[in-house]
């Protein structure tokens, strides 16, 4: 009898601790989440893991030149995104936007050199009224072309004087089935010469907090939009520093 009471209390303790831990608000994934063991062979995994414990994350990334590994993961993710772009739902826009990123030359500014935890997290407060960039009206499925055009626009990118820059992509004027939209992509540098793209005003809601997201997360976030409300715009924000890239996604309702 005593035995069963003790066994039962053990199970109860397990469930309580497990439940308590599941309520945790853990920090969002960092760059290092991408160094998952999933694609590594056992020997590398053991070596890299050991070094990470012994010398810390940053020196490990340097020593093992993990940026190559990270680029490889990024490329694999882009391939995955392309495979998904068969349908022409509004979600595709997000995936294509992501896909264009790797090919875009200006984005190389942001290519990670020393993965580190991003320090300051951008918030809604530091939103500009407008950005400097380009505006096109396009099928959402072809949004990649706009990203490429923006990226290869050297008139704009030549004016950049720092690795720290934010890029805003504003999707607005959607058609009836959300297959077309006007997309404006621009830098948050008011002093730059170029076309000014206004960010619409309205009720802003956050879909994704600033962090590193894979394509699936970005895709899924478009599904969190409340399409029953009048959607004025969807804003994808990318914050680059020399060491990090943060993506966030917002929706602006009427």
């Amino acid at each position: 009898m005593n035995f069963f009471v003790s066994a039962l209390s053990t199970i109860l303790l397990g469930l309580v601790v497990g439940f308590a831990l599941s309520l945790q608000k853990a920090e969002p994934p960092t760059e290092f989440e991408k160094y998952s063991s999933a694609n590594m062979d056992f020997a590398t995994m053991s070596e890299v893991g050991y070094a990470m414990a012994a010398f810390g994350r940053e020196s490990t990334a340097d020593y093992f030149e993990l940026k190559d590994y990270q680029e490889y993961v990024q490329l694999a993710q882009n391939d995955h995104a392309k495979a998904l772009s068969a349908s022409d739902s509004p979600q595709v826009a997000a995936s294509e936007a992501q896909a264009s990123k790797a090919e875009a030359p200006t984005m190389q500014l942001a290519q990670v050199e020393h993965p580190a935890k991003p320090k300051a997290k951008p918030s809604l407060k530091d939103w500009p009224k407008s950005v400097i960039g380009i505006q096109r009206s396009t099928e959402l499925i072809n949004v990649e072309k706009v990203w490429q055009e923006f990226a290869s626009n050297s008139a704009l990118s030549d004016q950049l004087d720092s690795y720290t820059v934010s890029v805003f992509a504003i999707y607005s004027d959607f058609n009836s089935d959300y297959s077309r939209a006007t997309i404006s992509i621009g830098y948050d540098k008011p002093s730059m010469k170029g076309e000014q793209q206004l960010i619409p005003k309205g009720k802003i809601e956050t879909l994704l907090k600033p962090s590193n997201y894979g394509n699936n997360a970005l895709l899924n976030a478009w599904q969190d939009i409340d399409y029953s409300k009048a959607v004025k715009a969807v804003v994808e924000r990318r914050d680059y520093t020399q060491n990090s890239e943060l993506t966030s996604l917002f929706v602006i309702y009427q």
Binding site: A26, E33, Y35, G49, M52
Partner: peptide, 11 residues
């Protein structure tokens, strides 16, 4: 609440 990677735990 800092996140770890599985690789780090293994290490």
């Amino acid at each position: 609440q800092q996140r770890l990677t599985d690789l780090e735990l293994f290490g």
